[in-house]
Nucleic acid binder design. Structure first.
Lengths: 181, 181
DNA sequence: CGCCGCATGTAATTAGTTACATGATTGT
DNA sequence: ACAATCATGTAACTAATTACATGCGGCG
C-alpha cells in the first residue's frame, strides 16, 4: 500500500491527527494521492502497530480530543527505503477516454457536456495550483531541496492541467462539425 | 467496476476471447484502462452471468481452444446507459510525486535516475502513439464519429506524454545545480 | 530439450469504496 | 433550531494484485 508512504510523507515535518491528514489530502500531497478518512484512520492504526508511527492523545477544550501521529525513527528509515526503491508505474484509469471509444451520434451531446464539465473542473484546479505557486514558490531555485521537489510536483499539476485544457479545445474543434450534421 | 465497461467497449466491434482482450489491453484501450488477465477472465464470467455478454467456444487445430465473447443486446443497452451517466473523476495516483515530497540530498541521485527512467519510458510510449496516429489517423476530421473519439483519446495520450517530457526537463534544470552543491 | 506464445484459470491477499454511526462545538 | 466543522470510527462490499497452476504446440 503506497498510501502508507503518502501518509508518512505528510508526517515528515508535522505531527498530524487522522482528521488533519484527511484535510491535507484534500490539498497538497492529496493532489497526487487521494484517500478517504476511513482508509487513513485504518492505515494509521496499522502503521502504529508496525512501529512506524507513534501517537499521542491531545486534549482540547473547545474541540473534541484528537490523536496526533508522528514518524518514529524506524518509520523514517522505512520511508527512506521506499523512496530509494524502484517506483512502479500505475497506468492512469479514466472513464472519459473509455467513453470516447463509445462515441456516436446519440451520445455526442452528453460526451460534449462531460468534456465541458471536466474542462471547468480543470480550470478551477489550475487556478488553485497557480495561486499556490504565486504565494509560495516565486523563487524555487533559491529553496531547499525538499521545497523544490514539492514545487516540481506542483509544476507537474500545472502543466497537466494546461495540457488537458488545450486537449479539450481540440475535442471541441473536432466534434463541433459533427454536432451540426 | 468500470472494467466491465472497458471490456464491453472493446467488444463493441469485435468478438474476442479473454486472452485476446488481455492482449488488446496492452495496446489501444489499454492505454487508458489496464487490467490483468485474471481480472479479465473473472469479469467476463460475471458479465455472461448477468446476460450482458454471450460466449461461444471456438475449436482451433494448432492452438488451444478458446472462448470468444460478444455483446448481447442488453449489454449494448447497459453500455449506452453507462456512457450516458455521469463519469466520476478518479484522481491519478503516482508514486513519483509522493517521492518528490521526500526529496533531499541523499535521495537526489536516485530520484534523478527515476525521473530519467520515466522520461525514457514516456519517450517510447510517445513514439508508439505517434506511429499509430501516422498509420491510422492522418485525417481524423474525415472519419466517422467513433473513430474520431478514439483519435481524441490517442491525442490526449500524445499531449500528455509531450507535456510530461517537458516537465522532466524542468526537473533536470531545477535539480542540476543541487547535484553540484 | 527447453523456452515462448497461446489459453485459461484458482486462491489468497491487499487496497479502496460506500454506507452507516456517534458526539461535541461554532456560527447563522 | 439547524447546518457546518471537528474528530473518529465499524461493517460490508467491490476492485485489483500477487502468487501459483495447467496444458498444448511451435521453434531453435
Amino acid at each position: 500500500m503506497a498510501l502508507t508512504h503518502a501518509i508518512m510523507t505528510a508526517l515528515l515535518e508535522d505531527r498530524l491527527s487522522g482528521y488533519e491528514l484527511a484535510r491535507s489530502f484534500d490539498t497538497s500531497l492529496g493532489f497526487f494521492w487521494k484517500a478517504s478518512h476511513q482508509q487513513i484512520y485504518k492505515c494509521l492504526r496499522e502503521l502504529e502497530v508496525q512501529g512506524l508511527l507513534s501517537s499521542e492523545e491531545i486534549s482540547q477544550e473547545t474541540r473534541p480530543d484528537k490523536v496526533v501521529y508522528q514518524l518514529t525513527d524506524s518509520g523514517r528509515a522505512e520511508l527512506d527505503h521506499w523512496v530509494a526503491g524502484e517506483g512502479q508505474l500505475r497506468e492512469a484509469k479514466d472513464d472519459l477516454f473509455v467513453k470516447l471509444y463509445n462515441l456516436n451520434e446519440k451520445n455526442l451531446p452528453h460526451i460534449q457536456r462531460e468534456l465541458t464539465a471536466r474542462a471547468e473542473h480543470t480550470r478551477a484546479r489550475l487556478a488553485l495550483y497557480r495561486q499556490i505557486r504565486e504565494r509560495r514558490y516565486q523563487r524555487p531555485q533559491d529553496m531547499p531541496l525538499r521545497q523544490r521537489g514539492i514545487y516540481l510536483a506542483l509544476l507537474a499539476g500545472i502543466n497537466h492541467c494546461e495540457q488537458f485544457l488545450q486537449w479539450t479545445e481540440s475535442c471541441e474543434q473536432l466534434l463541433a462539425s459533427a454536432a451540426v450534421n
